[in-house]
Write a protein that binds this DNA or RNA. Sequence first.
DNA 1: ATGGTGGTTAGACCA
Length: 277
Amino acid sequence: MPVTVATWNVNSVRKRLDQVRRFARETAVDVLCLQETKVTNDLFPVEAMTEAGFPYQAIAGMKGYNGVAILSRRPLAEVRVEPWLGRDDCRHVHARVAAGARPLEVHSLYVPAGGDDPDPEANPKFAHKLAFLDALGPFLAARAAADVPTVVAGDLNVAPLETDVWSHERLNRVITHTPVERDKLKDLMAAEGAGGPAGGGWTDALRRFVPADEKVFTWWSYRAADWRAADRGRRLDHIWVNAALAPALSFAAVHDEVRDWPEPSDHAPVRAVFEVP
DNA sequence: ATGGTGGTTAGACCA
């Protein structure tokens, strides 16, 4: 049975209702992980998303900033919000999705952007980002090795490979592509705990279908007259799959056509398909 | 070297 999971930083779910509806209609996605919903739970557009085909919703939002959600056509269970670093700032929700013989664990994650100055001594936002990535380490390593088939999806705000940015040279000191962040993200992917590699680490779903020497992006700044012509993008949004689920991964792609829709988010959705038993 | 745009929300803050 195919199960489709997508991740999308919508930059305000209320401003993107039409786009979410259209994406749901055109891709028949089963589980949609959102980031930057920018709305408190009591004001979340529950009805609109139900009508879009997602009656099951796990939401964790706050006023004005951040906010994550998991929208699903299938029932959700064991919904949890992770208050990383004690901040409770609505960056991580996860749930179990009913799918085939056994449930799929799905995470919607929004890593701090980190501000502009790549010196963590001078820039507390970047220090927070690095601490956040460190804090995720043991949590993600445990899930990499778990028997539960698991997907980690979200805006990780890091472009780890040289081909994940439009210019590796020019972005070397630009936050999202600095060496320290790239190293931390690669460490998270390797999922090496104290006892060695945990379950072989995470599979980068998109890179199973796009060769590592080929550029691929999921975000393009609003500050470009013609984003596609300039194509100064970065791959900030990721879908990671643990070893228990990796054999079921059958497809992944970036829906960059969505960036061309009217009043778009600056991020495009990433979608992955699994053939679950 | 600088500013360019967008969302939230009412003057900045964040991306």
